[in-house]
């Protein structure tokens, strides 16, 4: 008898969808960060990059739609996986020790939704301009550099970005390791590299992104 529920029917399949959509979102986040680091080259470089991205709708929109779909699948699967475990231990232990669980793994269920809220805030802030009026350059194009710098000059905004990216770093610390395990990529020869990979990129993203509000704050970028 075939007891299979189909690929997505099991938590194993759901987690593979989470891993694949996670990889796509991670790649975007990485490229996004590298692009943003051009803020250190100067206003012209960052603005030119911003205009370049918006100048090809044939690429911009497919990327946006794919990312939106990834976010949706990642969240729906995460909620389903979480619900499955939620009812799995109705009577709790009086004493329970978890020697192997690290902080990042334990907080995935919190860091995820907070990052989602942050992404919405980030879009409202710098894409839709509903937090502060957006600045435009003399020739009427959006002044990415000015928007970022003036935004981060508000301590509250800078703190939101810093905290969110710290949580993103934690989320990636577990996620970038976990995805190998979930997709069945495991071999004694390279298994220790899975953790090293996750550490390097979690730190790179967190430090790269957080450096921007910190630099604005410190007055290095103005």
């Amino acid at each position: 008898m075939d007891k299979s529920l189909g690929f997505y029917g099991s938590s194993v399949g759901k987690k593979m969808w989470m891993a694949v959509t996670g990889i796509i979102m991670f790649l975007f986040i990485f490229v996004h960060m590298i692009g943003n680091l051009q803020i250190y080259i100067g206003p012209e470089a960052l603005n030119r990059y911003g205009h370049f991205l918006h100048s090809i709708p044939e690429i911009l929109w497919p990327v946006r739609i794919i990312l939106l779909l990834c976010v949706l699948v990642h969240i729906v699967a995460a909620v389903q996986v979480w619900l499955q475990s939620y009812g799995a231990r109705p009577v709790k232990y009086k004493i329970k020790k978890d020697p192997a669980v690290d902080y990042a793994a334990r907080t995935m269920v919190w860091s995820g939704p907070i990052i989602l809220l942050f992404i919405i805030f980030h879009l409202l802030h710098l894409t839709f301009g509903s937090v502060y009026q957006l600045h435009y350059t003399a020739n009427g194009q959006i002044d990415v550099f000015r928007n970022v710098v003036s935004g981060f000059q508000h301590p509250g905004i800078a703190i939101i970005y810093i905290v969110a990216n710290l949580l993103l770093g934690f989320h990636l610390y577990h996620g970038l390791w976990s995805l190998f395990q979930t997709l069945g990529v495991s071999h004694p020869r390279f298994n220790h590299w899975r953790r090293i990979f996750a550490i390097i990129f979690a730190y790179a993203i967190a430090i790269g992104n957080i450096s921007i509000p910190v630099s604005v704050w410190a007055g290095w970028v103005h």
Binding site: S10, K15, S85, R89, V101, G184
Partner: peptide
């Protein structure tokens, strides 16, 4: 419940089964 790669099982297992078994199963599932 559903696995989220906490790796707590590997530490608790009296036969010290490695989570590489889980990766192999996931690979087979795919």
């Amino acid at each position: 419940g559903a696995c989220t790669n906490y790796t707590e099982c590997e530490v608790a297992c009296p036969k010290e089964i490695s989570i590489s078994a889980i990766a192999r199963m996931n690979h087979d599932y795919l």
